[in-house]
């Protein structure tokens, strides 16, 4: 079985000529960066992979994750994690409950709480479990969002301009953390961005759309 995330002849259009076509194989621990100015359909590609493409788009091709064809799977059964430029922590849940939302079901309450605390400790946020996410700083929110996603044990990772809201110093720090975690778990990563620094830091193949 092929490990990794494969896009096989993926073509997306909106009632006209194709907006984009991609044919690429992302191996475990590799990063593919998709670049291009805003409006060329970078996020549309991610929506196709997560299964949330708006119905006015037409898409062809296949998406394979670790050898499974997930092109037509329901969004919640795809095992594809995603991070957006906003942290999108659920505002009605505490930091700990946000992480528990990502954690797969099963295990005793104590075991689950331990896992949540472990995850918080891993990103230097020990003791934050009962906090209101709205009271966290930008960098802290980004770290919680990352750990929430990783706790759901995804097999692939999508990044939708994930660092563009962070200021320069924080940006490099969060970026390294995300890529390190992905490599450590051998996750294939697909990142869309319009920032050349992000692309360079990712260190993988680069596709540029909209030329």
């Amino acid at each position: 079985m092929d490990k990794g995330l494969s896009l096989r002849d993926v073509t997306i259009s909106k009632g006209g000529p194709p907006l984009l076509s991609v044919n690429h194989n992302i191996g475990p621990g590799e990063v593919l960066t998709v670049m291009g100015p805003s409006g060329v359909g970078k996020s549309t590609l991610l929506a196709f992979i997560t299964g949330t493409l708006a119905p006015d788009f037409q898409a062809m091709g296949e998406v394979l994750l670790d050898g499974h064809d997930i092109t037509h799977a329901a969004p919640h059964q795809r095992r594809v994690g995603i991070l957006f430029q906003d942290d999108l922590l659920f505002p009605h849940l505490s930091v700990g409950a946000n992480l528990a939302f990502g954690l797969q079901p099963g295990g005793t309450t104590e075991a689950r709480r331990d896992k949540v605390n472990e995850a918080l400790a891993e990103v230097g946020l020990t003791g934050f479990a009962d906090r209101d996410p709205a009271t966290l700083s930008g960098g802290q929110k980004a770290r919680v969002a990352l750990m929430r996603m990783l706790l759901s044990e995804p097999c692939g990772l999508l990044l939708d301009e994930p660092f563009s809201r962070l200021d320069a110093t924080l940006r490099a720090q969060v970026r390294d953390m995300v890529f390190d975690r992905a490599k450590a778990r051998s996750l294939p990563v697909l990142m869309v961005t319009h920032d050349a620094d992000d692309a360079r830091a990712a260190g993988g193949a680069i596709i540029t759309l909209g030329d």
Partner: peptide
């Protein structure tokens, strides 16, 4: 914000 829905689905939450 429907991205909340995308995130939750990516965290394997059913519709």
């Amino acid at each position: 914000d429907t991205r909340m829905g995308t995130i939750a689905a990516a965290l394997r939450s059913s519709p």
